[in-house]
Amino acid sequence: MIKTSGLSKTFDGGVEAVRDVGISVEPGEIVGFLGPNGAGKTTTMRMLTTLLRPTSGTATVAGHDLRADAKEVRRNIGYVAQGGGILPTAPLKGELELQGMLYGLSRQESAAKTREVLAGLDLAGLETRLGGALSGGQSRRFDIAFALLHDPALLFLDEPTTGLDPQSRANLWGHIRALREEKGMTVFLTTHYLDEADALCDRLLIIDHGRIVAEGAPAELKTGGRTLDDVFLDITGRSLREESALSGKGA
């Protein structure tokens, strides 16, 4: 579903955010993309979702070449950015239907799909509200709703549960699992919660300083009786990341 080779991004200022990343994700997998702040997670996702042009490397996403066929890639993926994409001043229903139409649905199809997606995410009835009038968990589920209107085969979620209470997080996991069970969707998500990675993901990729430094199923990574937190800290070190102040720039 995702296959990259030598994917790299150097920003104009000279920051090498992503270096020589090779990723392979199979259809139907839920893959967790872990790494400290500033490691390059968002930058990688923005390349895979056609928002950033890679400096070098190749990638096939949802069956289409990222560079040659960006439009086809967009047609087949959903993306929820780290900061979401909700206009606080607009009623959600109209915004959702517009988004569906930008994905090529007719007005009627988009309205029907909006109802279906909202019901699936337990959001029915909230769509008459303004975007600014939602709780954190509702807001995040609406962000996901925007990305599901065209039945994508592959869903990218950038820190979908950051800042949510435990109830909302568990609720969101349920919804993400349901997308895979019911639609066979492939999910590629980033998170800082290692319990979440452990519970939700089939496989994990750990990135640090722009490079993939470890990869495997949670059970495979937890060698020697360590918790996933221990593994993560052993791999990426314990020093605080100065980049944290700058992270979220790509959101």
């Binding site: 439009k71 967009r74 993306y79 994409g85 909700i86 206009l87 988004q99 930008l102």
Partner: peptide, 11 residues
């Protein structure tokens, strides 16, 4: 608010 980017990932 991220709306522009949300539209930029559509076809």
């Amino acid at each position: 608010s991220g709306v522009l980017e949300r539209m930029r990932v559509t076809p």
